[in-house]
């Protein structure tokens, strides 16, 4: 199985549109994964039907038993995450800030603290016309997004070990969820856009992906909105020996397709043709 992640660094460059397009173009057996667990959008264009769903538990969190607590305050002194709330007498854990390190439990002289599992989100296993899709919803404001990303990837592999391709829609950024998404993948497609922020973010993304030993291809989306910066991106990619596997023009059909809940590649529009060509190029390189 080849694990391919579509990533971007900067948000909103068109990861999901490209992922959906590839899902439609690819004729090999595939399992799809939406690793943007904060704000998963792939489901909006693949019209999945949910087969199975279950709760996602993050790291265990601390809980203080008020009947046992002696109000000594040691826990609030040792917690480095500001997760112990108090009015001076009653101590309690602010679950949203607890990272599950257990230091409070270790130091509580009264033995009032236990660790308890906490539901941090929900995982969905769905069918689509292109392959099965694993997606998730992180509880609003929850932590553990890196853990949830690892979980959805693991589910996808476990239930579809024989697919040719695992196609991953990645999260924005370069932090915990991105690192969790890219670790263990073979290749990433970095979707960028011709703006100074797009280029700046691409540079950071590339450096992070390199440390994770993934192969990198680049795609410039909406390249014609600023041809000069598109050229700068091409030059940067040449210097870094990153193949630019295609450019996609700005095309109003893209949003029309999203509004219809369809991959853009179903139309014959310029953006659709570009994504078809990109996938032809990448699949030649992969197989």
């Amino acid at each position: 199985m080849i694990r391919l992640a579509v990533v971007s660094g900067k948000g909103g460059t068109g990861k999901t549109v490209v992922t959906g397009g590839i899902a439609h173009c690819c004729t090999r057996s595939m399992v799809l994964v939406d690793c943007d667990v904060d704000a998963s959008n792939l489901e909006l264009i693949l019209s999945p039907h949910i087969i199975d769903r279950w709760d996602f538990y993050g790291m265990d969190v601390a809980i203080i038993d008020p009947d046992v607590c002696s109000s000594c305050g040691i826990c609030s002194g040792v917690c480095r995450f500001g997760a112990i709330a108090t009015n001076g007498e009653v101590f309690s854990v602010r679950t949203s800030k607890c990272e599950g390190c257990r230091v409070c439990k270790l130091t509580c002289p009264a033995g009032a603290i236990t660790m308890q599992p906490r539901v941090c989100g929900e995982i969905f296993y769905s069918g689509t016309r292109y392959g099965n899709l694993v997606h998730a919803r992180l509880a609003p404001g929850a932590s553990n997004s890196g853990l949830l990303v690892a979980e959805v990837k693991k589910t996808a592999f476990k239930r579809n070990p024989d697919c040719d391709l695992m196609l991953i829609d990645g999260p924005p950024g370069t932090g915990c969820p991105l690192i969790s998404t890219v670790s263990g993948t073979d290749v990433v497609i970095a979707v960028t856009e011709p703006s100074r922020s797009g280029l700046h973010d691409l540079e950071r993304l590339v450096r992070v992906c390199r440390t994770l030993r993934a192969g990198i291809y680049a795609v410039i989306n909406k390249w014609d909105l600023n041809p000069d910066i598109s050229d700068m991106i091409r030059q940067y990619c040449r210097r870094e020996e990153i193949p630019v596997v295609g450019t996609i023009p700005y095309d109003e059909c893209v949003m029309a397709a999203v509004r219809n809940g369809q991959p853009v590649t179903m139309s014959g529009s310029p953006a659709a043709q570009a994504i078809h060509a990109i996938w032809d190029d990448i699949s030649m390189r992969l197989w």
Binding site: A39, L138, G141, A142, S145, P172, P177
Partner: peptide, 8 residues
């Protein structure tokens, strides 16, 4: 940052 998790 974009998203809805701990950095936000």
């Amino acid at each position: 940052s974009p998203g809805t998790s701990c950095p936000v």
